[in-house]
Structures are given as C-alpha cells and as structure tokens.
C-alpha cells in the first residue's frame, strides 16, 4: 500500500437545478479514519458515489480513482442471484484483493461462499459486501452507513475489523448520521451540510476542547 493522502477539490454536482454538492474538498491524511457526518439529504451518498467511482458526472478533482478506492454502498450494486464466491471472484478481478482473508472473514461471519445474495438476510448480505470491500488492498475504503441493518454481533464484527486495520496506512472514510457507535474510532470528522463540507477536524482536539463529537456535530449544523 502506498503512503499517500486522499485529496479531492471543488467537487460539485447538481440534479437539474438543485445543487447537491457545491465545491466540496478535503485532504484526508494517509492512515486516518474519517467520519463524514451529515443529516439525510446533506449530500453524503452523492459525495461518496463520486469518490467511489459510482458516479462520473461531476466537476472537481479526485486524487485516487479506480481500484485505489473500494466502496461499500448503501444500495447494493450487485444482482441478487450472484453467489458470494462469485462476488469474491469479481473483486479479485477488479481490485488488489486478499482472497484468503476474505474467505476466513466469511467463515467467521458464518456466510457460506455458495449462497446467493438473495438467500442471505439483509444484514448478512451487507456484511458480505463489507467483507469484500474490506479485503481489497485499495488504499482508500469508503463506507456509506456501514452499520445500518446490522445486528449487534455484525456491528461488533465490523467495528473490530476496522480496529484491526486502523494501524495500516489505509484511509477509511465513513459516511454516517449515527455518531455514537463509531465516534471513538474516528481520527478526524468532517460535517457535510447543504452541499458544503466543514474543515476536517481532529477528533481528540474536539474532545480536548471539552466538547463531544456529537456536540461538535450539532454546532456545525447550526
């Protein structure tokens, strides 16, 4: 994995007359775990779709593209008849992929390789897609609401996987409106509001100022 930051500048996007992103930019330091916080409709998913190669219709610049960025979407891009092992083969074709690790995590999560996505519960399906993205060796991992639909065991699974990888050089960016369960994992947070992003702020420096991440988030929304 190369030692480098993830930089994007001037990201703008409109749906018809409605401007969803109005010049969003940040330099995300190598090895950080960033919480991108925002309410529903703030543009989190729109931004992640752009950063994660799922949407090419935008203006602005992104430093890492293609297989350098793995992206767990909220809406699965995969057809329901695909088998988990086929999904792994797909990831192995398009990304630098740690197939051994994926196999062992799938076993740990009790997800059989031969099962079709449609036969899995919503939580298991999401976990399978998390494992695929997590097991790429892409320097950037984007996760859009990674804990949604997951039961407590699956949530612990995701959190512990993120803890395991956070001493690596990898950049993890998490879009969420649920602060509580992930706030102690974030090295930085950035608040997205009405298509603009507030400056990236170090999580511990927020707390050093006597505020919680949640208070910081609320204040940023005002």
């Amino acid at each position: 994995m190369k030692d480098r930051d993830f930089v994007f500048t001037g990201i703008s996007k409109s749906y018809g007359k409605k401007k969803v992103l109005a010049g969003v930019g940040a330099r995300i330091p190598c090895g950080s775990m960033v919480g991108v916080l925002g309410c529903n409709g703030a543009g989190k998913t729109t931004l992640f779709n752009i950063l994660g190669n799922a949407d090419r219709d935008f203006t602005g610049r992104v430093s890492l593209r293609g297989s350098d960025v793995a992206y767990l979407r909220t809406d699965s891009p995969f057809p329901p008849y695909v088998k988990v092992e086929e999904l792994a083969a797909f990831y192995a074709r398009f990304y630098p992929f740690d197939g051994g690790r994926a196999a062992s995590l799938l076993r740990e999560a009790d997800i059989p390789g031969g099962s079709r996505l449609a036969s899995l519960s919503a939580g298991k399906r999401r976990l399978a897609e998390f494992i695929m993205n997590f097991c790429t060796r892409s320097p950037v991992l984007l996760l859009d609401e990674p804990l949604t639909n997951l039961d407590i065991n699956a949530r612990d699974f995701v959190v512990n996987a993120l803890i395991d990888c956070s001493l690596d050089e990898r950049i993890v960016a998490v879009a969420t409106h649920e602060v509580a369960e992930l706030e102690n994992l974030f090295t930085h947070v950035a608040v997205l509001k009405e298509g603009r992003m507030r400056p990236l702020t170090v999580a511990e420096s927020i707390r050093a100022g006597g505020r919680s991440i949640k208070e910081f988030y609320r204040e940023s929304l005002q």
Partner: peptide, 17 residues
Amino acid sequence: AIRDLAKTCQVNPNTVV
C-alpha cells in the same frame, strides 16, 4: 498489546499508541 487494548476499549489503535 495495542490492538487487543483497542478492541477491549473499542477505540482507534492510534489512540492506544
């Protein structure tokens, strides 16, 4: 170990470092 303590506390290992 750093990772173990990070998991016990459910925090970023960089914090434990």
